[in-house]
Design a protein around this nucleic acid. Structure first.
Length: 461
RNA sequence: UCCAGAGUAGCUCAAUGGUAGAGCGGGUGGCUGUUAACCACUAGGUUGUAGGUUCGAGCCCUACCUCUGGAGCCA
């Protein structure tokens, strides 16, 4: 007999099929002469109800079959006599595979997110986390679909890098040196030339510079992989290890970049709603009551596009008082971004043309001489979800920027070569995968959309 | 890292400075085509840690630890 997944069983067109089901027991309810089992195998949110009659082969094990136990059932799919489900399985044979004793920590009633984090190895067996990680999987698939269907090439940029990119953010050091007794030079400093790579190496913070290399050869490319930040950030939106999506397009300016970002966000939302309706319904009912309204709003409305100068003007003219000053040249703070997207426009907002002084060296300088072609997409509830720019393609301007930023010119020789030989206007952006997942599911903490989250002090699972 | 709040039974939470409780979960028994089942009984505690104030501290004070929310950094 062929095994059938719970999802397939529930989607059967008609009753009468003999099936083999395997999964974990969510709950057992006993009657005098039979028992109800709710079995879930992770294939979907819903459970399959199983009826095991007294006298069915294996029934003697039913009293040891508690919440959390693994089981198999052979039986026939029949129409349910009770309310709440269309089909159920009437068992002809029952088997207990692995017991779960009374210490099994997942109860049928609600647990706090904090408690569930402490049992990260068991929380995917809960309704909520099962849904989160099914949606995470689908969203990752949708990322590839979106780019592949538009002819983008997937580039695997290195996870270990030697340069610290733009000097932004703390990096994790990668080394095979003996930390107890590292080799030292004459001046007592650690001799990095005797490390594995014969130089200092780190975990990547971004694949952008490498992606630019391939954009300037394959045209349209994207990266999708893990990135690392050793920042001591203790917030619901930061993790030390997270996944980032970075498209990079040759012959594309800041406007094409903004178009792609908007299309991309809408595609991901639409795809998730289409393919995971049950899971999304769970989020809408139990996680975030306003979720569907907000997602549909993002789908329906064009993103508001404004310049940084416009944003400063709007913030200054508003009668709201902010904790941080609003002035040209200052970064937009969380409170400013939230005001723009949640209160003023009430939709996603793309802000562009930021002051040169607050953006990194690789962004293209605008003709006004004081702003760069940078753009951030701000969404309600999360804030900045996408950051991107048109890259500086003029060799003289780029080298000037590198020098002004105090960066080691020689480290960027290959990056500069892209401008030396057949330079082209090109643009790209970065999207934090987990931030997008939070926006799509309504989950409020990044720790709860990562299977095993890495944050300061936490790498236990 | 900074600011604020919180740590009490396995879980979620109560408890004027005066005998630590409930619901859920667990165990036992009962009932029922049940569905976060129901009914009865039952076990379960060094109140985060270490000091201090007090006749007396879960409650007040100090330090530390942990978690949460917000901020900074950012994606």
């Amino acid at each position: 007999m062929k095994r059938i997944k719970v999802r397939e069983a529930l989607e059967l067109e008609q009753a009468g099929e003999d099936v083999l089901v395997k999964g974990w027991v969510r709950t057992r309810r006993d009657s005098k002469t039979f028992s109800f089992l709710e079995v879930n195998d992770g294939s979907c949110l819903k459970n399959l109800q199983i009826i095991v009659d007294q006298g069915t082969p294996g029934y003697d094990q039913i009293h040891h079959t508690s919440t959390g136990a693994s089981v198999w059932i052979k039986g026939r799919v029949v129409e349910s006599q009770g309310k709440g489900q269309k089909w159920e399985v009437h068992a002809s044979e029952f088997g207990l595979i692995g017991r779960a004793d009374e210490s099994f920590p997942l109860q049928k009633k609600g647990h706090s997110m904090e408690y569930l984090r402490e049992i990260a190895h068991l929380r995917p067996r809960s309704n909520l986390f099962g849904a989160v990680f099914r949606v995470r999987s689908r969203l990752a698939y949708a990322v590839h679909n979106f780019f592949q269907e538009q002819g983008f090439c997937y580039i695997h940029t290195p996870i270990i890098t030697a340069s610290d990119c733009e000097g932004a953010g703390e990096l994790f050091r990668v080394t095979t040196l003996d930390l107890e007794n590292p080799p030292r030079r004459e001046d007592r400093r650690i001799d990095e030339t005797r490390d594995f790579f014969h130089r200092a190496a780190y975990l990547t913070v971004s694949g952008q510079l490498e992606a630019e290399v391939f954009a300037c050869s394959l045209g349209d490319v994207y990266t999708f992989g893990p990135t690392f930040r050793a920042e001591n950030s203790n917030t619901s939106r930061h993790a030390a290890e997270f996944w980032m999506i970075e498209p990079e397009m040759a012959f594309c300016d800041i406007h094409g970049d903004m178009d792609l970002a908007e299309q991309f966000v809408k595609f991901l939302i639409r795809d998730t709603l289409t393919h995971n309706p049950q899971d999304m319904d769970l989020f809408a009912r139990f996680v975030d009551k306003g979720l569907m309204e907000r997602l549909n709003f993002v789908l329906d409305k064009p993103f508001q596009r404004i310049t940084y100068s416009d944003a400063i003007g709007i913030l200054k003219e508003s009668d709201r008082s902010f904790d941080y000053p609003v002035e040209f040249g200052a970064n937009l703070q969380s409170e400013h971004e939230r005001f723009l997207t949640e209160e003023y426009f009430k939709c996603p907002v793309t802000v562009r043309d930021y002051p040169e002084s607050i953006k990194p060296f690789y962004m293209r300088r605008n003709d006004d001489g004081r702003t760069v072609a940078a753009m951030d997409v701000l969404v309600p509830g999360i804030g900045e979800i996408i950051g991107g720019s048109q890259r500086e393609e003029r060799p003289d301007v780029l080298m000037n920027n590198i020098r002004n930023a105090g960066l080691p010119e020689e480290e960027y020789w290959w990056y500069a070569d892209l401008r030396k030989y057949g330079t082209v206007p090109h643009s790209g952006f970065g999207l934090g995968f987990e931030r997008m997942l939070m926006f799509v599911t309504g989950m409020g903490n990044i720790r709860d959309v990562i299977p095993f989250a890495r944050t300061p002090g936490h790498a236990g699972f």
